[in-house]
């Protein structure tokens, strides 16, 4: 493989994926505002552009032009570092996500930035480091609301990370690999019927993953770290302008990553739900981009679900949150691992 071609194509891939990811983040915010608006029987943003479609640009310009306040009491190095950690951890994981079928052009896989053997573990480790963004933001702000928000976030993320990791073990057992492409390939045989969530009988694991992921991303009903009625804004109370925007982007970026992981692990990734029932239509270009369409559609469904849940459910109380994570989700996840491995062992025996 020519090194120059490899470098050029890789940079191209990274640029395209990053631009798409960041605009997806911006438009997820709009999606949330519109949908929550409709759920509450109002319109949501509707003035900027046709039916409010240019609202993310206006929001971005506003946040970018706002004064960047640096409160006097903060511990400056960590106060500045925290939003950078949060945002970069939200952006790194997309590098291992395959968003289309394996199609090589000049020997470079065009639908994944990096095909890593331990792709799933890379995503988990980047998420586990991402909590420092929140923890350090709360601590370095020198504000009691921020500190309480950060303490809540750290405790919540550590507790739910266990259930989250264990809920994925069933899928890994079935696929026999930690490589995200292999995991998707293991569910590709018969369309919808062979997806892990249906044909793989991982539906319990899927719901454990979904609940734990909602808690990991600090979203309703687990948004205690930024509960407005008790903590002002939680860990980002003291942040303004672009630093605040970075936390905001990190939160929505993490939501999209959760959608990507759920799609890859439980919903067959980029494969079509109709399997081979759908005849191969169009030319080679349509066939190359159809998997990307399925992938994006599935991730969009997850984002829709996120907003729907936010518009529907009230917030947990803190002791309920901890009790639910440790006493219910964790045992269920472990039971799922036991059941899956017994079933696999029986089938091979």
């Amino acid at each position: 493989m020519n090194l120059l071609v490899f470098l050029l194509l890789s940079v191209l891939k990274i640029a395209v994926v990053l631009v798409v990811f960041l605009s997806a983040v911006a438009y997820t915010v709009l999606l949330e505002r519109k949908l929550v608006g409709r759920i509450q029987n109002r319109w949501g943003p509707s003035r900027v552009g046709p039916s409010g479609l240019l609202q993310p640009l206006a929001d971005g310009a506003k946040l970018f032009l706002k004064e960047d306040l640096l409160p006097t009491g903060v511990y400056r190095p960590l106060y500045i570092l925290a939003p950078i950690i949060a945002l970069s951890c939200a952006l790194i994981s997309i590098a291992v996500v395959p968003y289309g079928a394996r199609i090589a052009w000049h020997g470079v896989d065009m639908f994944q930035i990096a095909d890593v053997n331990i792709g799933l573990l890379v995503i988990l480790s980047v998420t586990s480091v991402g909590v420092y963004g929140i923890a350090l933001a709360g601590w370095s702000s020198n504000n009691k609301y921020s500190l309480l928000g950060a303490l809540r976030a750290s405790a919540q993320v550590i507790s739910y990370e266990l259930a989250l990791g264990l809920s994925l073990v069933g899928v890994v057992l079935r696929a026999g690999s930690l490589n995200l492409r292999s995991i998707v390939d293991s569910q590709a045989a018969h369309g919808l019927l062979s997806w892990n969530v249906f044909g793989g009988f991982q539906i319990v694991a899927f719901f454990v993953y979904l609940i734990a992921a909602f808690a990991e991303t600090n979203r309703t009903p687990f948004d205690l770290p930024e509960a407005e009625s008790e903590l002002t804004a939680g860990y980002h109370t003291e942040y303004s302008s672009m630093k605040f925007a970075m936390f905001f982007m990190a939160e929505y970026g993490n939501m999209i990553m959760v959608g990507c992981v759920a799609t890859l692990l439980f919903f067959g990734g980029w494969t079509s739900p109709f399997g081979s029932l759908l005849p191969a239509f169009g030319g080679i270009v349509v066939q190359a981009f159809l998997p990307v369409f399925w992938f994006v559609l599935k991730v969009f469904c997850f984002l829709f679900l996120y907003v729907w849940v936010r518009g529907t459910l009230p917030r947990f109380r803190y002791d309920q949150l901890m009790g639910f994570g440790w006493k219910f989700l964790l045992p269920v996840a472990i039971a799922n691992i036991l059941a899956t491995s017994l079933w696999l062992a029986l089938r091979t025996a």
Binding site: S125, A135, W139, L147, S154, A155, V157, I158, E161
Partner: peptide, 13 residues
């Protein structure tokens, strides 16, 4: 880096 050190910083905080 993830779990154990988060607990360390948690306790320090």
């Amino acid at each position: 880096s993830g779990a154990i050190m988060v607990l360390f910083t948690f306790v320090i905080m």
